[in-house]
Design a protein around this nucleic acid. Structure first.
Length: 297
DNA sequence: CATATGTCCTGAGAGC
DNA sequence: TGCTCTCAGGACATAT
């Protein structure tokens, strides 16, 4: 379930590869159905080998490795994909290996490592719903440009957030997951941010008041920034790991996600409920999350 | 156009 | 113990 904080953690974890040169790209054959790799391995290798990594960005929930050819390698982890520098959880779900020379392996931490060291950028994916694509600037724009991806959730202002959503008749929880409206929020953090601003997840966007948009924006920013500080959420299945195969810490800060039946940690009056919206679980407290704007607080 | 639903995939866990 | 079944939710194709 990598969402913005997890993907940002992956991005930071491999930032030390900037300046490195790609030596080889190897697929890791296994009995599982292969992930989407485009173009095929041979053409991928032809375009990537000998290119230098100029920058590593994030596009919503995707890691974008920019090459000096102006092509980009776009890694999309979807549900269970991991971007690693080493030490994958196992070999059987290792999908792709990109061998990189001449970079430091960790952002800002050059200590003692020779500039000529060889590193591996690994893509691991248990369920295999993710993809790795090498795309031209034109293809990047077509797939990940502003018509496909809204503004990054970390770049929003209260006004932009409201402008992107307030015409919609959808429930706010469902709309927050729409990557064309805003990019980066997924199922887990949507529940958390709505809880923290006291908004009921089923509230229609077009019924939200200005002060609610403000509070939602503040909660959105606070939750995402804190989750990045904690290096993301590793849920009970333990799948998500950072680039060094370490668990995140934000799962310990969750107030409602996956806590159905527990007493609300915010108001202690309600019991956390689980409902289903658009085939996804939503968690909230019926006592302190309301559809009405609050007059005070 | 906006919104809703089905699909992909694997492994964990429930129930018998 | 071992089988079958359901569920998790990223993005996208297709339907309404």
């Amino acid at each position: 379930m990598p969402e913005l904080p997890e993907v940002e953690t992956m991005r930071r974890g491999i930032a030390g590869l900037v300046g490195g040169r790609i030596l080889d790209v190897q697929s890791c054959p296994c009995r599982l159905k292969p992930i989407a790799l485009t173009p095929g391995l041979a053409a991928f290798r032809r375009s990537a080998v000998d290119r230098t990594i100029e920058r590593i960005d994030r596009a919503g929930k995707r890691v974008v490795v920019r090459l000096d050819s102006e092509d980009a390698i776009v890694i999309e982890p979807r549900m269970t994909g991991l971007v690693l520098l080493a030490d994958p959880p196992n070999q059987e779900h290792l999908r792709l290996r990109i061998v990189v020379a001449g970079a430091s392996s960790r952002a800002g931490k050059l200590r003692g490592e020779s500039r000529g060291a060889v590193h591996e950028l690994l893509y691991w994916d248990r369920r295999g719903l993710g993809s790795v694509r090498l795309v031209s600037p034109r293809e990047f724009e077509r797939r990940y440009g502003p018509t496909k991806l809204g503004p990054d959730a970390l770049e929003l202002t209260p006004e932009i957030l409201r402008e992107r959503l307030f015409r919609s008749r959808r429930a706010i929880k469902v709309a927050l997951l729409d990557q064309r409206a805003l990019a980066g929020v997924g199922n887990l953090y949507a529940s958390e941010m709505l809880h923290r601003c006291g908004v009921h997840p089923a509230t229609r966007c077009d019924r939200l008041h200005t002060d609610q948009w403000s509070r939602l924006h503040a909660a959105l920013a606070a939750v995402l920034e804190s989750a990045i500080e904690h290096e993301g959420s590793t849920l009970s299945d333990g799948t998500y790991r950072n680039a060094l195969n370490q668990a995140g810490g934000y799962q310990n800060q969750h107030l409602v996600y996956d806590r159905a039946g527990e007493s609300c940690p915010t108001c202690s009056r309600g019991t956390i409920l689980r409902i289903v919206q658009a085939q996804r679980s939503t968690f909230y407290c019926p006592a302190c999350q309301t559809k009405k704007a609050r007059s005070t607080r």
